[in-house]
């Protein structure tokens, strides 16, 4: 099997989509009722990220795909097989849908060891070597006899990912899998996700709202807002407005302004870092320490350094 991207053009064409999804459902949220109403298609082998504020219905979409949450109306078709169709009254139960779902809380079985957790996912008569292979791939050899309670967040995440793949699912669903991890761990686990995605030729949908992650992992992004798709496209197409642009722009608070020769050096606090900006006497005329300012630059030559 060749790379799916070579097989299919980047824009989905009728009759070729691996996944077709259309769902309507009334969600009960803290702010009252919210109609979830969306449809999308996805090519085989691609990674789709669902992006949006909390409460937009991201997790619900994954649960609907997995068959854990019912829909009011709609249809789900994967590789030509109908999983759900409210018109034709088709409803494949969760256990018969070929999905690997990584839950936000990982949902590892606390009474089983890491290896037993993976073996649990084997279907009758399936080769145990797959479990060994995954343990190796996810670098879990040292942990295979441990119970989930004794693992760190990152380790639990790896086990959950490995367990979801044992079944060789047609769809891999990841629900904010890396939200509880620090940056180093995140980066490493993104690598694991890409590795298994390629090795087992999966089609993956993940929920995330962390931009670097979205850019690194996904081919396509769906922006979900209040239950509806706001935008859909490649990450660079989606985040071309406010979030990322050719312009460099930060906002912050002025800490101090020090005169140096004919200019001023203005220190601006942005998040936890202090940015020093050179300004003319004219620029700082109306500024005082404590002011909120926008620092922007249009044509500049940024220096890119690798950080570890």
């Amino acid at each position: 099997m060749t790379n799916a991207n070579d097989q299919y053009p980047s824009s989905p064409q009728a009759g070729q989509s691996f996944l077709r999804f259309r769902a309507f459902k009334m969600l009960q949220t803290a702010d009252g009722k919210l109609p979830l109403d969306l449809s999308f298609e996805l090519n085989k082998g691609s990674i789709l990220t669902i992006y949006g504020n909390s409460g937009a219905g991201k997790t619900t979409v994954l649960r609907i795909l997995a068959g854990l949450t019912e829909i009011g109306s709609g249809h789900i078709e994967v590789d030509g097989e109908a999983w759900r169709n409210t018109d034709r009254k088709i409803n494949l139960p969760a256990r018969k849908r070929s999905v690997g779902l990584v839950f936000q809380d990982f949902a590892l079985f606390p009474h089983l060891t890491v290896k037993e957790n993976l073996e649990f996912a084997l279907q009758k008569g399936e080769d145990r070597r797959l479990v060994e292979e995954l343990i190796e791939l996810m670098e879990l050899q040292q942990l295979q006899r441990s119970r989930p309670a004794n693992l760190s967040g990152g380790q639990q995440q790896r086990v959950a990912l490995a367990r979801a793949i044992v079944r060789k699912p047609r769809l891999l669903l990841l629900d904010e899998p890396l939200s509880a991890l620090d940056d180093d761990m995140r980066y490493k686990l993104q690598g694991y996700i890409l590795k298994v995605h390629r090795q087992y030729e999966l089609t993956t949908i993940l929920v995330s709202h962390y931009l670097p992650e979205i850019f690194r992992l996904s081919d396509e992004v769906i922006c979900l807002e209040k239950g509806k798709i706001q935008r859909m496209g490649r990450p660079s197409e989606i985040f071309n407005g406010e979030k990322i642009s050719g312009k460099f722009k930060i906002t912050g608070e002025i800490i101090e302004m020090i005169p140096a020769d004919i200019v001023f050096i203005v220190s601006v606090l942005h998040a936890n870092t202090i940015v020093k900006v050179i300004a003319t006497a004219d620029d700082v005329k109306d500024l005082r320490a404590g002011d909120k300012v926008l620092v922007a630059s249009k044509a500049f030559n940024p220096v890119i350094l690798k950080i570890d």
């Binding site: 068959g67 139960p93 256990r95 849908r97 839950f103 949902a107 079985f109």
Partner: peptide, 15 residues
């Protein structure tokens, strides 16, 4: 019991 345990089991294909 967290409901996700039961759900995880069914997404792993168990009756």
């Amino acid at each position: 019991l967290p409901p996700s345990l039961k759900e995880a089991s069914s997404t792993l294909g168990k009756s």
